[in-house]
Design a protein around this nucleic acid. Structure first.
Length: 478
RNA sequence: GCCCCUAUCGUCUAGCGGCUAGGACAGCGGCUUCUCAAGCCGUUAACCGGGGUUCGAUUCCCCGUGGGGGCACCA
């Protein structure tokens, strides 16, 4: 029947419409693990042309806080993980047809679903709480672990068809609480109700939820609803230096906020995170976001947990820093220094600041190294690295070289790096020496260290006068 | 204790019955060089153990062991 085709096609599109959600609770700092879960959901939505929903699970009045809620919006926005439905990022209002998107405002919906369960005889009251009722013959056993009698129900195992793990069977043979005696519905209940109501098609979450999922499947069945597809992604574990177990909010480097404050580049963090538990199937590592979106798919996600490696993240950040347009680099650097104690001084001269920053860009791994790396450009009161001093002063005749350099400096052409280099080389040649014989001691005198941009650039930016006074001061002191 | 997931270099991983087990980070060595980075070249380093299945197992199955998670009127 040809006339059916368009309707059928539309139906299939509607049925295959991917809707995923990220559902954090504002009870703590936003950490790397949450960011990765959000990212995988976001990637899957973007890959499939589906919808990414942000739902706030703020039902724990004791622990919820407005700051943590703010942090969720900020962190997701900073990472670039925009959501199609959910509260607006600035906190006022929301968008989407399936709201409210904060559980604290969905009480009426939960009541309706609870009623449905009660009407169906699948919920009952006991000890002031409301329990979900499993179907089947009952018997009691003594649970050694919990040290009490528990009532069990004879029923087959719950089957979870997981897109990443395959078929998982789990016994779920006890009734469980769905509404606490204080009247608040528990996580399992509201989570399932919301996912049904919001028409979530794929639940992508951490593997730590895998054992909850059997409860959830029971609830779907209780509501007479086919469960969505599940995809339990591996967890992020501590790196060997951090210890054992899954990464927790207390671990160093575990908070998204930390990378934000350190001015890491969001695309670098996103790229790194995408590679934790997933890969494009070949050797590609540094990928554009578009590329990741195009290549990402659930069956490609690994089944085993991954350990967090700050060094590799730092390397990724460097890669992105290297290719950042210099105006953007300077802009970020400016923002960074605005929050530094030396900020006012450093930012006083915009052109000079930009020149220094552009010198530093190809040399650093992250923007927060900038203060230490460029300190001597903005103050004469920099520290001399004693180890470097010992090394430099112990080789050849640095004092003599310094004296020669000071003598030659007034007539040295400072117009550009090439001129400075040529000048020093001429001096070196006149003494039958090399550029390197002057470089090390000059660098030490002028910057206090052995790491930095080319000495000619340092001279040029410092200017002849300041260069001379630093060289002279150092010569006098040593 | 019970249940579930999982297992390739130190770390992230490729491999989907036959490979000199590949790449990346880290490490090490070298080149380059004005220092330090970067870059380039090279190098160290892995299939957890035992049984099967098979002509043949890193790959499939089982059992150990290791790692992880979960067993609440938390989410």
């Amino acid at each position: 029947m040809p006339w059916l085709a368009p309707r059928l096609a539309a139906l299939i599109v509607a049925m295959s419409q991917v809707r995923v959600r990220f559902a954090p609770s504002p009870t703590g700092f936003f950490h790397i693990g949450s960011a990765r879960t959000a990212l995988f959901n976001w990637l899957y939505a973007r890959h499939t042309g589906g919808t990414f929903i942000l739902r706030i699970e703020d039902t724990d009045q004791a622990r919820d806080s407005a700051e943590f809620l703010r942090l969720i919006y900020d962190s997701l926005s900073w990472l670039g993980l925009n959501w199609d439905e959910g509260p607006n990022p600035h906190g006022e209002g929301e968008r989407g047809d399936y709201g409210p998107y904060r559980q604290s405002q969905r009480g009426a919906i939960y009541q309706r679903y609870l009623q449905q369960l009660q009407d169906a005889g699948r919920a009952y009251k006991k000890d002031g709480a409301i329990w979900f009722k499993q179907l089947g013959d009952r018997y009691t056993v003594f649970d050694e672990h919990r040290q009490k009698e528990v009532e069990k129900v004879k029923r087959g195992p719950v089957v979870i068809n997981d897109l990443i793990r395959g078929r998982v069977e789990r016994a779920e043979d006890e009734d469980f609480v769905i509404v606490r005696s204080d009247g608040h519905p528990v996580f399992h209940f509201v989570n399932v109700v919301d996912d049904i109501e919001m028409k979530v098609s794929h639940i992508i979450r951490g593997e730590d939820h895998l054992s909850n999922t059997s409860k959830h499947v029971c609830l779907y069945e209780g509501f007479g609803v086919t469960p969505p597809a599940f995809a339990h992604i591996p967890l992020i574990l501590k790196s060997p230096e951090m210890g054992q177990g899954k990464m927790s909010k207390r671990d160093k480097g575990a908070l998204v906020e930390e990378y934000q404050q350190r001015f890491f580049l969001p695309p670098a963090l996103v790229n790194y995170l995408s590679l934790l538990g997933w890969n494009p199937g070949d050797d590609r590592e540094k990928m554009t976001l578009d590329e990741i979106v195009r290549l990402f798919d659930l069956p490609g996600v690994n089944q085993s947990n991954a350990k967090f490696d700050g060094k590799k993240l730092a390397h990724m950040n460097m890669l992105y820093l290297l290719e950042l347009p210099s105006e953007k680099f300077v802009a970020s650097a400016k923002e960074y220094f605005a929050g530094q104690p030396t900020g006012a001084t450093v930012l006083a001269n915009e052109t000079y600041f930009a020149d220094v920053m552009m010198l530093a860009q190809p040399k650093i791994k992250s923007i927060d190294e900038l203060a230490a790396y460029t300190g001597y450009f903005f103050t004469d009161e920099f520290l001399i690295d004693e180890k470097v001093r010992a090394k430099v002063m112990g080789k050849g005749e640095p004092k003599q070289r310094l004296v020669e350099l000071i003598a030659a400096l007034p007539t040295l052409d400072f117009s550009d790096d090439g001129a400075i280099e040529a000048g020093i080389k001429t001096l070196a040649e006149s003494k039958s020496l090399g550029f390197g014989d002057y470089q090390a001691v000059a660098r030490l005198a002028v910057s206090g260290t052995n790491a930095g941009p080319s000495i000619t650039s340092i001279f040029r930016l410092l200017g002849k006068e300041r260069t001379l006074s630093r060289l002279a001061r150092f010569a006098q002191a040593s």
